[in-house]
């Protein structure tokens, strides 16, 4: 969900407080970035600049860490987060074709969000239910034994 101005201001204050409390611990960057990721759902340039300036390090360093680890996202997530498993079992059962169909239907590629902010496709390896391969989740809902033909109807529910 897109954050309102008030929500952003409130979360920024929380982040500032967290930074003040933790900036002197050894290796403060990761915990601070994780806190920000959790609060905002992603790391905006503004958030990265705030973290960099507070720690006295260049923004390039924060950005470097943010792009190194898959746990951080640079873009806001859509209302519905889709994970199409590309783990080994799903892959051999046609997971790639399922992902291609989702991408085609939404007009975006993996790790992107639709312009209306409704859907995000998230890079996904194993979801831990290989018996259902190929599998995908939308938010908390699990869809198994998929074929590309099933995708339009599933997406229409959201």
């Amino acid at each position: 969900m897109a954050l309102t101005k008030e929500q952003i201001a409130e979360k920024t204050e929380e982040l500032k407080k967290f930074i003040a409390e933790n900036k002197n611990m050894p290796g403060p960057l990761m915990p601070i970035m994780q806190f920000a990721q959790e609060k905002f759902g992603y790391l905006s340039l503004e958030t990265q600049i705030l973290i960099a300036d507070s720690l006295g390090i260049p923004v390039t360093e924060v950005y470097g860490v943010a792009t190194f680890y898959a746990q951080f996202s640079l873009n806001p997530k859509g209302d519905n987060v889709i994970s199409v498993c590309q783990g080994t079992a799903c892959y051999v059962k046609g997971g790639a074709k399922v992902l291609a169909k989702v991408e085609e239907q939404l007009g975006i590629t993996s790790n992107q969000t639709t312009p209306d902010g409704k859907f995000t496709i998230q890079d996904t390896r194993c979801l831990g239910c290989c018996g259902l391969a190929p599998v995908m989740t939308i938010n908390e809902d699990v869809y198994g034994k998929l074929t590309p033909e099933m995708i339009p109807d599933i997406l229409a529910k959201y």
Binding site: A52, I57, P58, V59, T60, E61, Y63, G64, T67, F68
Partner: peptide, 9 residues
Amino acid sequence: IGAIGVSKR
């Protein structure tokens, strides 16, 4: 200055 850095992996 910090104009350039490393990104991705």
